[in-house]
């Protein structure tokens, strides 16, 4: 996949942040507390186990 659009990025980070806030095990070592910030860090390191399914032509 080339790169995520900003909407896809927002959606992935959002979904992951929700998981983290509900107690999912973290995939990065971090000092951060805020689930959203942790999700962003995970996204930047490309370790989030979520991707998008695109329609044809996107």
């Amino acid at each position: 996949m080339e790169s995520y659009t900003r909407y896809e990025r927002a959606r992935i980070i959002g979904a992951r942040a929700l998981q983290i806030s509900m107690g999912a095990p973290l995939l990065v070592k971090t000092e951060k507390i805020d689930p959203l910030e942790i999700a962003i860090e995970e996204f930047d390191q490309k370790v989030i186990p979520i991707t998008v399914k695109r329609k044809v032509g996107m």
Partner: peptide, 10 residues
Amino acid sequence: GTGDVKLIAK
């Protein structure tokens, strides 16, 4: 926007 993004597990 984000409403049209379908997530799947990787």
